[in-house]
Structure formats: structure tokens, C-alpha cells
Write a protein that binds this DNA or RNA. Sequence first.
DNA 1: TATTGTTATACTCTATAACTATA
DNA 2: TATAGTTATAGAGTATAACAATA
Lengths: 144, 144
Amino acid sequence: MSTSPTDPIADLASRLRRGVLMTSRRLRSQRSADLTEGQYSALAQLDAHGPAAPSDLAARECVSAPSMTRTVGCLADAGLVERAPHPTDGRQVVVAITEQGREALYATRRRRDAWLATQLDGLPPDELEALGRAADILRRIATQ
Amino acid sequence: MSTSPTDPIADLASRLRRGVLMTSRRLRSQRSADLTEGQYSALAQLDAHGPAAPSDLAARECVSAPSMTRTVGCLADAGLVERAPHPTDGRQVVVAITEQGREALYATRRRRDAWLATQLDGLPPDELEALGRAADILRRIATQ
DNA sequence: TATTGTTATACTCTATAACTATA
DNA sequence: TATAGTTATAGAGTATAACAATA
């Protein structure tokens, strides 16, 4: 590495990067076979923030509009989202998650949580506490 | 969620999953434009564990052999790895990272570390300590 | 004229199946 | 006959450019 080993922040950043990326890799491998990462993310957005236009989803997920058109199309074909016309603006479309979509989303989350819970089970209380604090800090960092 | 909110392990797993996946997403977005995630992973393997056969890399990265052939081909075309014949087994190929490959790998790591260090900078000491402990625990969890 | 969404087209990454060379 | 690697081919996913409908 190029950074000085005596800089504690740089050292922590490197260790944390490795831990986070390795764990995320294992977490992602627990996803449902018939739900891509992009579809999962779009569903999570719709579940967390309610119905949205495809352009909004594309912007939030950092993908192109045609790509989101395709993602939404796949999800609609599978019955996981529903498209409805915008009440006042005829150009826009409103995409909403369906009950079936929530089930698919939650199933993947349950699988990931189950894997992670298995790994956590049996850890000493002080390690669990450190992870609990880290979880909240990581979420704060990522949303900044 | 389906799990009981009173189960502390399940609750921690869910919070940690969110924190890890959100952070990993931001970290991945800091990668070099001309190095895919698969190429980055292969380079990291070769850098950490030394020269390896394509089949070994494919198994470790959980991709097919033809896929690794292609990844190694791209890396070789870019001068980031070198292919050499196996000393005793004429069927095998030995792939090794080059100095240029190390530079490309470290450049991406530096970019990710720099982003993360920026986020860490200014956090109170107790939060840094929690993250430091979590980093090691996460790495242990992911490699189990 | 600008914006929203879609279609057309091409490129990248991945996988399975078939092929070549070596053991 | 089995194994390591590659090539052939096809299937997702994404992007840019062009198009249709609406504001």
C-alpha cells in the first residue's frame, strides 16, 4: 500500500474495506436465484420509499433510463411490481411494489439474514456489541 | 420482516446486512473505470496468494472456467498478468500478476481507502474503535 | 421546445457445450 | 479415459442514440 502504516485512519479504512467487501460478497451470494441484484435493489427502493417513476428509480440506482425500463419490465412480467399512469402528468408512469414483490424481497432478505445470523451465533457479547455499533455507523457513512 | 423483533441476533443480522451492503455499494462505485469487479477480484487473489492456474482462480472466485479464461485474457492483454506454462504438467497454465497489475490493483484500493478514510475522518474515538473491532470480525465471518 | 418513457442496437460479462492437447 | 484450457454460441444486463407521446 502507498499510505503510511502509521496513519491509524488509513489503516482502519483499509481493514474495514476488506471486511465489508468480503462480507458483502458472501451476503450477495445468498440471494434468490430468480431475482438479480438490480431487481432486488429496485424492489427495496419501492418498498422503502413507496411508488416512484422509472426515472426516479434510475437516478437513485445510478443506472440509465432504458436499463430501468427493462428492470421494471422484468419485475412487472413476474408480477412483483405494477405500472399505473400518473394522475396528472400523462408522460409519467408510477411503479409500485406488489404484495408478491414484497414477499420476493423479504425472502431474499431472510436468506441473507439467516446466513449472517448463523455466523453471528456464538460470538462473545463484546463482539456482538462492536458489530451492533458498527452496523449503525456504516449505515450513516454510506448515506452521507 | 418475519423474524421476531425480540431475537437480538436476528435483529443485529438485519442491521449489519444493511450497513455492510450499503457501504460495499459505495466502495464499489469508487473502482477504476478500466478494471471490472471480476478483474479486480482475480488480481487481488493473485496478489495475495501468488501465481495460480486459471481453474484454481475460477473455483476461488466461483465463476466458470471459460469465464476465467476470458478474465485472464483481458488482464493479459492489458499487461496486468502474465501466463506461463506449468513446469511439469503441459496441460496447465500458471497465471501471475505483473508489476503493472499490482499498480492497477493498488490504485483501486487507494481510491476506495481514500473515500472511506474521508468518511471516517472526524468520527469520535469510540466509534473508530468499534469499527476497528468490527473490521476484523467481519473478515473472520466472511472467510468461514 | 423540453421531458418522460420506450425501442433499436451494440457491447460486456457470464454460462453451457464442444473441441484440443496433455496425462 | 480423465483433466486443463480454450473456443463457439447463447443469454442476461447495461449503455447510447433515436423515437413517440405529452407538457
